[in-house]
Amino acid sequence: MNNISWRGIRAFLYVAEHGGFTAAAEVSGFSKANLSQLVTELEAALSVQLLYRTTRQLRLTEIGQGYYERCKIAMQQLDSAAEWASQSTDELRGEIRMNAVGGPVGEEVLAPLIIEFQRQHPGIRVDLDFSSIHVDLIASHYDLVMRMGELPDSTLIARRLHSVTTRYVASPEFVAENHEIAGPDDLKSLPLIRGSVDTWTLSKGKTRKTVHVAEGIKVTSGRVMRQAALAGLGVTRLADVYVQADLQQGRLTEVLPAWSEETQLTLVCPPLRHQLHRVRVLMEWLKAHFAERYQQALAEGPGQHFKSNLGAS
């Protein structure tokens, strides 16, 4: 280990991440020749080949891929430790990289809170990403993630934010025109408005029912699913933040209310990032204000928050 240079590991990570010495040199500040020398010295110190080099391409060996994955995590931990050691505990400054669910929950509940947080703490910049990818917090570059559902990784720092109720709804006209919907089996003969999932699993206590969606329409947008339900095209299932205002004002009717489902929204953070003062402050801010903002979004309905802001400007 004494013969292994940290600069060599950094150089290898740059090359692996950017697919070649030329691209790595453009972003790293190292010269192409220097990168090549450092990686060669690293391979010699390890007595293994990390890269396949040809005149046309460069790719990782099997050992190189495994070494890259482990070194990337280790370097992230070292960077976090260095940042923690050098940070000021009194001054809130720096970047927070956050991934979250989108739709009304992300855009009309979380985003206004993030905007207000940054207004109160101008030294902090929150990079908020609404991509729907599943994030591996240990291996990724994110400091904080808002997840919906179960959390299998118990090594992460988790803070519960709020519970979301999924409701089954249709227009009053659709309900009046069709037979009474008394249970999940009655959905099988009706047109259903679904998103990316073609099988619905309904739960009531310990009872579970599965419905394979065959009739109806498929759209991968909760807002469009709501519009389709309002237009009387069938039964859909959506989070309460999409449909609560419509239910209260009679534009939609809830069917199978006993089968509505509760899903937990949770803030999740890697242990090393949780040690950063700015990340902990943001987590506490969201815990303190999320429920109130969520209730406001329920009353307003999707899209109303930003409409009201635009109208006031």
Rank of each mutant, 00 (worst) to 15 (best):
V27Y: 11
S203Q: 08
E83T: 05
V197C: 04
N2V: 06
E300D: 06
V279S: 09
A291F: 03
D198Q: 12
L202F: 02
M1D: 04
T207S: 13
W6Q: 13
H277A: 10
P270G: 04
R70D: 13
E261N: 13
D129F: 04
I133A: 15
F174D: 03
G103I: 02
D90R: 12
I138E: 15
N178F: 03
I115D: 15
I4G: 08
Q248L: 09
L110D: 01
T201Q: 10
L267W: 07
R167M: 05
L156W: 07
A229W: 04
Y68G: 04
A24K: 05
D136M: 09
E177T: 13
A25W: 02
Q244N: 11
H212F: 08
G123M: 03
I138L: 09
D240M: 10
Q249D: 08
S196F: 09
V109P: 00
A182G: 14
V213A: 12
I217Y: 02
S28A: 05
G123V: 03
F21M: 08
D185A: 14
G123W: 07
L161N: 07
D127Y: 15
H121T: 00
I9D: 08
E173R: 15
E107Y: 06
S154L: 10
S47P: 01
R53W: 00
Q57V: 12
D143H: 14
V219K: 10
L192R: 11
Q37L: 14
R223A: 10
T55F: 05
I157S: 01
P112Y: 03
A44L: 10
T165R: 12
T236K: 00
F21E: 02
V48Y: 09
A158Q: 14
G216V: 04
G250C: 08
D240K: 10
T22C: 08
L252G: 08
E69R: 14
R167Y: 07
S154F: 10
Q249Y: 08
G301W: 01
G303M: 06
L137K: 09
F117C: 04
L113K: 00
V224L: 11
E262A: 11
L35T: 04
T207Y: 05
Q295E: 15
G29K: 14
Q227S: 12
G205A: 12
D246Q: 11
T89R: 05
M225S: 11
W259S: 08
I193T: 04
R237F: 06
L161T: 15
L58Y: 01
Q249G: 03
H212A: 09
P184K: 13
T166Q: 13
I138P: 01
G106R: 04
R293V: 08
A312K: 15
T22Y: 09
P172W: 09
A139V: 06
V164W: 01
S140E: 02
E17Y: 01
R280L: 09
H141G: 13
V39A: 04
S31F: 00
V255Y: 03
I9N: 02
R7C: 02
P302Y: 13
Q244G: 01
L252M: 06
S140R: 03
L190E: 00
K209Q: 07
R93L: 13
A258E: 15
V15L: 09
E300V: 08
A111D: 02
V135T: 11
L247H: 13
H305S: 12
H134E: 15
R251A: 05
A100T: 12
R159Q: 07
